[in-house]
Write a protein that binds this DNA or RNA. Structure first.
Length: 265
DNA sequence: ATACCATGAACAG
DNA sequence: TGTTCCTGGTATC
């Protein structure tokens, strides 16, 4: 489920296995081979997550870039005897005691640091990062005639929010996704930022998207909340809070979900 | 066996 | 605005 929280969790988990190690970098599938050669045998100095992007900083000065898109997936083998690559493996990173395979990413390249800088420049603030400044988001949203539902998916406005968090952030703030950005008052924009921060950071910790409170989920303490009960509005038939039928529509090429009662237009 | 759909975004025009 | 590219789980035949 690659929204921003997934990316940050991956960076954290993979760093433990790979950073400061001399890595074998290969591309069993092919297309990435030329990129892999540039850093094969180099030391991985850092994995830096930003929004939905991952940057690999190598001792050669090169910077790898991975974007999972909708389908990208990592598989970790915590062993010194990795199995044969499964499926179309775009990139394989092999450390002495671990191997990580990457399948199906939208982007996987190794480039000059400048191309990373270019990507970072077009991204809005990432609420998961400590010290991130929401000003750019406030400014863009408060000036825009576009809907708040579109703005939340625009990575240059706020980085890391995807379709699930979009629905949930708006739900808990009782804001209709079709409301124009400029019609949200400053307090609401601040609440949107704070909510995004809370939800995405919780997602990193939990390793999943869980936006409902334990009490509202109705699931007893100690028991795992199933995915179908982990959101208030996203992909639900009825609102978890009031039971009204959830509305859906296409917005920015994705289905947006909202409760017509809790989020009046 | 086949179709469709999904947590994403670049690109053409 | 529409098209395209990733992959894999689930629905449908």
């Amino acid at each position: 489920m690659p929204e921003g929280h997934t990316i940050h969790k991956i960076a954290k988990d993979h760093s433990k296995l790979l950073v400061d190690e001399t890595l074998e970098v290969s591309s069993p599938q092919g297309p990435f081979a030329a990129h892999a050669e540039r850093v094969d045998g180099a030391v991985l100095e850092r994995i830096y997550p930003y929004g939905k992007h991952l940057f690999y900083e190598w001792s050669t000065g090169d910077v790898g870039h991975v974007h999972l898109g909708l389908f990208g997936k990592y598989t970790v083998y915590a062993t010194d005897e990795p199995p044969e690559p499964r499926g179309a493996v775009r990139m394989r990173l092999t450390a002495p005691n671990a191997t990580i395979d990457l399948n199906g990413p939208t982007a996987c390249t190794v480039d000059e640091p400048e191309s990373r800088d270019k990507i970072l420049k077009r991204l809005g603030p990432d609420p998961i990062h400590r010290g991130a400044k929401p000003d750019v988001m406030y400014e863009k949203m408060s000036r825009s005639t576009r809907t708040i539902g579109e703005l939340l998916l625009d990575q240059s406005v706020i980085a890391g929010v995807g379709n699930v968090y979009r629905a949930e952030i708006l739900f808990v703030n009782n804001i209709h996704p079709r409301r124009p950005g400029k019609e949200c008052d400053p307090a609401e924009l601040e609440a949107i930022w704070t909510t995004a921060q809370g939800m995405l950071r919780a997602g990193v910790k939990d390793g999943r998207i869980l936006t409902v409170s334990r009490s509202e989920s109705g699931v007893p303490r100690g028991q795992r909340i199933p995915r179908s009960e982990a959101t208030y509005a996203y992909k639900r038939d009825e609102c978890l809070r009031c039971g009204a039928e959830i509305s859906r529509a296409d917005m920015a090429n994705r289905t947006v979900y909202w409760c017509p009662t809790c989020q009046a237009e």
